[in-house]
């Protein structure tokens, strides 16, 4: 019975990692299309969203099947619950990547402006967070989860600054409000991607420690681990 369950759990993990890879690629390309105004790449990202949605549904169905047929407990139960939630987070990250790609398409069709903030740097940071949160899933390492949380504070701060920068630019060049508002959306979406990466790290923390740490900050301050 255990071997049967273990096989199912391995299968869930493979599906989740495949989905992660597709989503990471979507975020990477979305940011690339934003920098280069490359419509072809942007359309690839938008096209990938459907594939991501499909994968999310399949993974959720697998999780529900394993829950119903094996009634797992303890680490196995926490694992599947974490997979279900991470699955959902990844799908939403896919949506945000697709939306960023749509902003890139719109910006590509308009008169170019100098980006009001350092898009590439912020996108890099969001990708690093996503990358680390998925690494901490693969390696079951809560230290990586803590690093993700620290980076999230930096991105939040950057988003707040961007908001101010964009407002200033709108005052200075009101005729460019359309393009500037696209950038505001981009900044918000990158900040949301970072939030979802944080959720993934928190779900991994739950899987390992059995403790729900959302809406608390104590766990990221390097508090001594129980184990």
């Amino acid at each position: 019975m255990t071997q049967l369950l273990q096989k199912e759990l391995d299968k869930l993990k493979n599906q989740l990692l495949t989905l992660s890879a597709v989503v990471e690629e979507a975020v990477r390309k979305a940011s690339q299309s934003l920098e280069t105004f490359d419509a072809v790449i942007a359309r690839q990202v938008i096209g990938a969203d459907q594939q991501i949605n499909q994968m999310e549904v399949e993974l959720e169905e697998e999780c529900l099947k394993v829950l119903a047929l094996h009634q797992p407990v303890a680490i196995d139960l926490r694992y599947i619950v974490a997979v279900l939630k991470i699955n959902n987070d990844l799908e939403r990250i896919g949506d945000l990547a697709s939306n960023i790609a749509e902003r890139a398409l719109t910006l590509a069709g308009e008169a170019r402006i100098t980006p009001p903030f350092d898009c590439a740097r912020m996108a890099d940071k969001a990708q690093t967070m996503l990358n680390k949160s998925l690494d901490c899933l693969v390696q079951m390492d809560i230290r990586l989860a803590r690093q993700v949380l620290k980076l999230d504070d930096e991105i939040d701060q950057q988003h707040r600054e961007n908001f101010g920068l964009i407002k200033d630019q709108i005052r200075l060049q009101p005729e460019k409000i359309d393009a500037l508002s696209q950038y505001l959306t981009v900044s918000r979406h990158l900040e949301r991607i970072a939030d979802l990466a944080t959720n993934i790290a928190e779900d991994v923390y739950y899987m390992i420690e059995g403790e729900i740490v959302r809406h608390t900050s104590s766990w990221c301050n390097g508090a001594p681990d129980n184990n």
Partner: peptide
């Protein structure tokens, strides 16, 4: 015990390992 046992042996037993 069934969500997060403290002891590895307990976890191995209840998860059928």
């Amino acid at each position: 015990i069934f969500m997060k046992p403290k002891n590895k042996k307990t976890e191995d037993y209840i998860t059928g390992r």
